[in-house]
Design a binder for these strands. Structure first.
Lengths: 145, 145
DNA sequence: TCTATAGTGAGAATGGTTCTCAATCAGTAA
DNA sequence: TTACTGATTGAGAACCATTCTCACTATAGA
């Protein structure tokens, strides 16, 4: 099955002369059907252990390098991956300290431009070149309140 | 030397019947004199390799559990620690995607109130009760530009 | 087809972190 | 002080997510 995400990834990779191989397709398919970021092990199980771990890690690295995936570093030295924002849309995270759930939230343009202005002002004051930002809000989700 | 941070940590630990031992003091001292979160290895070097790594990791775990330290998960499965916000004050992070360094940045009241307004509006729209937030800015630091 | 290059699979190696266990320390009661 | 008890420490082994190696295979282009 070829989804629209597949097509977008395909052209992005073609621009960079990176092949969109079977293993890489499996990774993108696994992540695009997931409800949140997945670790290598979760992805491995998710594709029925068909893709060897060493290949899976290589695919993750290639796709991250190509800007298709974004890594999300979590507890216990586990790295989870999700599709990059240009595929999934820009969003922020609500992290429930009670149940651990991470919820994506869309942000209005007005909010986003305010956040971006703060980011730019902070960065230029520190001679830092910002590429992306993440606003992570910790607290209690509706279910745990 | 006993700093005011030392005293605050001491009373916090006493409340929880956790001892404030030599190794734990070294960890707190090392982190409070640092300009940003430190990994176990950086801390280990910072105290002249006097505190064995196994003890250092244990101290980090105990202090995190007690709410004195906050972990920060970064690239390469490295976890960096910093003093919790109630000790250090609220701040945000500049994360260099090239060298992995994390730098603390103070935020002006004006910036902070803008960010807080966005946080509150996002949260209430999602029936989420915010407790804290973190604005993480990724990009290139001055050295890696 | 032939050739050059990129990708794959299996397993070994790496390295940050955690675990084990014997030795030591701190607090308490007598 | 002394004995007892439980917490803490230090050294090294163990763990495990991730990366590396290398021989093999697939693909694109001539």
């Amino acid at each position: 099955m070829t989804t629209s995400i597949d097509r977008e990834v395909e052209s992005r990779l073609a621009e960079q002369d990176v092949r969109y191989t079977r293993g890489r397709r499996m990774v993108v398919a696994g992540l695009s059907s997931a409800g949140g970021p997945l670790s290598a092990a979760e992805l491995h199980a998710g594709v029925g252990n068909e893709l060897p771990l060493s290949s899976l890690y290589r695919s993750l690295a290639v796709l991250e390098e190509a800007g298709v995936l974004a890594p999300h570093h979590g507890t216990k030295g586990l790295t989870r991956y999700e599709l990059a924002e240009w595929l999934r849309g820009h969003h922020h995270h609500l992290i429930c300290t009670q149940c651990g759930a991470v919820e994506d939230v869309a942000v209005t343009d007005r909010h986003e431009s305010q956040v971006e202005r703060v980011v730019d002002e902070i960065s230029s004051a520190a001679s830092f070149t910002p590429v992306s930002h993440a606003l992570e809000i910790e607290g209690r989700c509706a279910r745990c309140t």
